[in-house]
Design a binder for these strands. Structure first.
Length: 346
DNA sequence: CAGGCGTGGAA
DNA sequence: TTTCCAAGCCT
């Protein structure tokens, strides 16, 4: 690297960190900039897992509940699977909850209860990919890791005018970012870039006039700045249909647990058949339309008898008190369907 | 690499 | 209303 490039890199980090010192979002899992204390790796890891593809607003309450109930990685490792899955209900991407438990137990049994401090060590844990390993290494352990999430992709793709479409651009973006990462405060640098992407360099209508690295941004004068980073076209979602069974006896409802893999894997659910492309003949007692990542579902609720109409007989089940249904930890799909039934009854 | 995998808020 | 998409990971 030339002296000029090294100087420009230091200046980039300096401007970003100065802005972060002033404008950092105060978040439950974050140590304020300037604090000499290092954050608890357990809390950093927990937040990073919850924040995968999930908004800060959605995560905040879950983070507070999880860390209050399981204050340390050893507490979480000792928790019952059913309790953790139920506590995760509503947050989505349930493989994260299964991996959260697997990871906590791996840290306890294979790492003496301490998170690995290197990217490679972290990367080997369940549910920890390139992004999360780099983020935890930088934020919790002060390692100069190259952290690249969707916010940082956007900031760098614009700042360097990288027009290669994602996901191919990822390597280019990481290469452009690497020389900018400072040895001092790499965690604040990563969080500063993410805050910049979340609040200034937004997908639409970015507030360039407030940007601390505007001066040398190559996309600054582009009228179509918002098109960066270039993303691949989206595919249309197919429509699917399903039936769920309302099986009630003695003020209790029959709930099953879904198979560990696949949609809503490992979660409690109403019993029902496979979801397929053709609508069911039944009219049902309630109905809900729910949009998943890769298909739309119309789920119809019908009255059923146990066990004949509990079609997934292989699944384990339990009679759950109707008065405590909110505590069952049902995914949003089923919660919406049951809410609809309650509306009909009233 | 491409596709599976949730949800809710913003525009 | 529809579309987009948010601190991705796994296979």
């Amino acid at each position: 690297m030339t002296n000029g490039a090294a100087s420009a890199a230091r200046d980039f980090a300096h401007r970003l960190l100065a802005w972060y010192d002033r404008a950092a979002r105060r978040l439950p899992w974050r140590v304020p900039p300037g604090s000499s204390a290092m954050p608890d790796p357990y809390r950093v890891w927990m937040a990073e897992i919850m924040l995968q593809q999930t908004t800060v607003a959605a995560v905040a309450g879950y983070f507070e509940r999880f860390t209050a109930r399981w204050p340390t990685v050893a507490d979480l490792a000792a928790a019952d699977d059913a309790d953790v899955m139920a506590a995760w209900a509503g947050l989505g991407y349930y493989a994260r909850a299964r991996n959260l438990l697997a990871c906590a137990r791996a840290v306890v049994t294979e790492h003496r209860g301490r998170f690995p401090e290197t990217e490679a060590g972290l990367r080997a844990l369940p549910g920890v990919g390139d992004y999360t390993a780099a983020a935890v290494a930088a934020i919790a352990f002060g390692r100069p890791a190259v952290v690249v999430d969707a916010n940082i992709e956007r900031v760098i793709a614009r700042h360097r005018l990288i027009e290669t479409p994602l996901p191919a651009a990822k390597r280019e973006i990481k290469a452009a970012l690497a020389p900018l990462v400072p040895d001092d405060r790499p965690g604040d640098f990563a969080q500063g870039l993410m805050d910049l992407g979340a609040t200034i360099c937004t997908p639409r209508s970015p507030a360039c006039s407030l940007c601390p690295v505007m001066d040398d941004c190559r996309a600054r004068s582009c009228a179509d700045l918002e098109r960066l980073p270039v993303k691949p076209p989206k595919k249309a979602k197919p429509q699917r249909y399903g039936v769920a069974h309302w099986i009630e006896r003695d003020e209790r409802i029959w709930l099953i647990r879904r198979p560990a893999k696949g949609m809503l894997g490992g979660m409690r659910a109403l019993p029902g058949g496979e979801w397929c492309a053709t609508p069911p003949p039944e009219s049902g007692i309630a109905r809900v339309d729910h949009s998943f990542t890769h298909f739309d579902l119309r789920l119809t609720l019908v009255r059923g008898e146990w066990p004949d109409e509990a079609t997934d007989a292989a699944a384990e089940g339990e009679w759950w008190p109707l008065s405590a249904l909110d505590a069952a930890g049902l995914p949003t799909l089923y919660r919406k369907l049951i809410d609809r039934l309650r509306e009909v009854k009233e």
